[in-house]
């Protein structure tokens, strides 16, 4: 193998890479939080009987689940330009991720909600619980247990998919890597480091999530 590795340049640019990693984390956390809020609304709309809301929610979910993430990002970045809306790469990637997260989480939430048998509502009522108490002490704890792992997976997925920012010139981890490698031609070194960083970020997130789940659910899952 004739390729000579030059790691020096990568170490010099480490602060920029770490900054990129921070943006990656930042955009995925934000996409997750906004996604959860919208998904709760969509899940309520979908379980509601009012037609227009249910219809909007269904269309949202189906488009988000059945088209590629890259398509969504292009749509936000190039497509909205046709309406005179020009989003920055960051906002374009963020809105695409929020759109997809909301779509997937809606189904997760709905499934979690419907998995709780209706007898539990009657049982809580017969114990004299108010409806707020029923949700607070009976329904939500069980629901959270069921949706916790799908939510963690969705979060990891967001982190990995935010790497598509590379294609619209966003300065998250992959975008920064791309910019730095094109300035130094050390493609292999920079992308190896980026891959390692993504791996570490995902592992840390999964580790943190399992710690949190142990605290939240006290081992009974």
């Amino acid at each position: 193998m004739e390729y000579q590795f030059h790691w020096n340049i990568v170490f010099q640019k480490m602060p920029e890479l770490l900054n990129g990693a921070f943006v990656t984390l930042h955009v995925s956390v934000l996409a997750m939080l906004l996604g959860i809020v919208i998904a709760i609304l969509l899940a309520i709309a979908k379980m509601n009987n009012s037609k227009p809301f249910c219809y909007v929610a269904t269309v949202w979910v189906e488009i988000a689940r059945n088209t590629p993430a890259l398509f969504q990002i292009y749509m936000a970045y190039f497509g909205l330009g046709a309406f005179g809306i020009h989003l920055s790469p960051y906002v374009a990637v963020l809105s695409a991720l929020v759109f997809i997260n909301a779509g997937y989480l809606t189904e997760t939430f709905r499934g979690g909600f419907q998995s709780i048998p209706s007898t539990q509502y009657s049982a809580s009522k017969s114990l004299g619980m108010s409806s707020i108490q029923t949700y607070r002490y009976v329904i939500l704890p069980q629901m959270l247990r069921r949706i916790y792992h799908p939510m963690t997976n969705q979060f990891v997925w967001s982190i990995l998919m935010s790497s598509l920012g590379i294609l619209v010139g966003m300065s998250e981890l992959s975008g920064t890597t791309q910019r730095l490698q094109s300035a130094s031609f050390r493609t292999l070194e920079f992308f190896i480091v980026a891959a390692v960083m993504y791996f570490i970020i995902t592992k840390l997130v999964l580790f943190g999530s399992s710690l949190l789940s142990r605290r939240l659910f006290k081992g009974e899952i």
Binding site: M1, Y3, L160, M161, S163, F191, Y198
Partner: peptide
């Protein structure tokens, strides 16, 4: 599963190029 596909693609195609 923990490294973005896009990074894997770039890495692999650069790697095979680099080793000739």
């Amino acid at each position: 599963r923990s490294v973005p596909l896009i990074i894997q693609l770039v890495l692999f195609s650069t790697f095979v190029g680099a080793i000739g």
